[in-house]
């Protein structure tokens, strides 16, 4: 279950980052100018329950013990926690941008998530700036996370990465 959650979220987050970076560069007359942001909002709101479930899952399950020096453990714990916190904050800030003028945001045309009544002036600018910076932060965190995984595999020659890929070894 932890593995499925991990890779589902990894796929979702990678898609969201790619979509986000791509869609803001589109020309107004590009055929996907409307479709990509709509898809980005749909996926973002669908990721929200998954992220919250992952947070609960983390709370109710024992975490594997970490290998390495104290600073390595500390860094790994910090990056792993941030990899959950930052996407959650990105969903919140993205939702605030989409609903800043009080309009609800639709999910796949099936249902609508209502707008909060915050009455914050220029919320779209503030939440938008937070959303963008969190995005760059998340790219950096993913970089660190991937570097850690590769270090386990190639330098420590342990089974952390293979276990995460569901091949062999336990998640220690």
């Amino acid at each position: 279950m932890t593995l499925i959650l991990h890779w589902l979220l990894a796929l979702g987050i990678a898609l969201m980052l790619g979509l986000g970076l791509w869609m803001v560069r589109l020309d107004y007359y590009h055929p996907l100018y409307q479709a990509l942001p709509a898809l980005h909002r749909d996926l973002g709101l669908l990721l929200a329950p998954l992220l919250l479930f992952r947070l609960l899952w983390r709370g109710f399950n024992a975490r594997p013990e970490l290998a390495g020096a104290r600073w390595e453990k500390g860094l790994a714990r910090f990056v792993q926690a941030m990899l959950l916190v930052v996407p959650i904050l990105m969903v919140v800030s993205g939702y605030l941008v989409s609903t800043a003028d009080g309009r609800p945001v639709s999910v796949l045309g099936l249902f609508e998530v209502p707008a909060p009544r915050l009455e914050i002036e220029r919320l779209e600018d503030k939440a938008g700036a937070v959303h963008a910076w969190l995005g760059y932060l998340l790219l950096g965190l993913i970089g660190l996370h991937v570097a850690g995984a590769l270090k386990h595999h190639f330098r420590d020659r342990d089974t952390t990465l293979t276990a995460m890929l569901g091949m062999k070894g336990d998640i220690r």
């Binding site: 800043a100 003028d101 919320l123 779209e124 600018d125 938008g128």
Partner: peptide, 16 residues
């Protein structure tokens, strides 16, 4: 200028 208002927050964000 930042007080511009076209009744659509994300459009106003673009215009600013």
């Amino acid at each position: 200028v930042a007080s511009l208002d076209s009744n659509h927050a994300v459009r106003d964000k673009h215009l600013r």
